[in-house]
């Protein structure tokens, strides 16, 4: 069960609207390594996690990703307020505007709508945890690319916070992976699915 809290995990206060930035930052909402995918990935995978520590990691990180959806959305919302038609046309935001006005829609910077084909839930905790480690790295490098494109400190500050969280999550998933491996016979690492294939009875 979930409950909403009326506060962002980290503050977002952007003085100057900038639709061109919104056009690239939107990838961290609904893009291939964005926050919508992250939340759906972890909250879907946790049912095949083999121990409570990893169930807890997936639940708690998945929940934090929901809060990151809200932070990225707040950045997009503030970057696209009070726009003139001239600003919309000249910034290249017009291709988004025609379908969504200034509404928040989960899509990649390329315009591709969010797709569950960007995530996996394999039912195999070792495969899933490796995907999760890769996902955190991919999200971190996307934030790095965003930071290369953004000068405004009001935008950089919450983006830097989100980038740091990817690093912390990578660490926690690494610990989760180690935990699952410690539960297994090392000769069988990756040879079978510990959540589905049971060892043969003697």
């Amino acid at each position: 069960m979930w409950q909403y809290e009326k506060t962002l995990q980290y503050p977002v206060n952007i003085k100057n609207p900038n639709p061109a930035l919104a056009k690239v930052i939107i990838s961290q909402l609904g893009g291939p390594d964005g926050e919508v995918g992250a939340a759906m990935r972890y909250l879907s995978q946790r049912y095949s996690a083999p121990c409570r520590e990893v169930q807890g990691i997936l639940t708690d990180i998945g929940t934090e990703e929901l809060a990151h959806i809200e932070m990225v959305s707040a950045i997009l919302y503030q970057l696209t307020r009070n726009l003139s038609m001239k600003e919309i046309q000249e910034s290249g935001f017009d291709t988004y505007f025609v379908d969504h006005t200034t509404g928040i829609y989960p899509q990649a910077a390329s315009g591709m709508p969010f797709s569950a084909s960007t995530i996996q839930s394999t039912g195999d905790p070792l495969a899933d945890l490796h995907e999760d480690l890769a996902a955190e790295q991919k999200a971190r490098l996307t934030y790095d690319n965003i930071l290369r494109l953004v000068d405004d400190p009001d935008v950089r500050d919450p983006i830097k916070f989100l980038r740091e969280r990817e690093i912390v999550h990578f660490q926690r998933f690494g610990e989760g992976l180690r935990k699952v491996q410690d539960m297994l016979d090392s000769k069988n690492f990756y040879a079978f699915n510990p959540a589905f294939d049971k060892p043969k009875k003697k």
Binding site: M1, R46, Y47, R52, E53, Q55, G56, T59
Partner: peptide, 9 residues
Amino acid sequence: DWVCTAFPW
């Protein structure tokens, strides 16, 4: 104790 009790599923 958060990871010592069962998850609800």
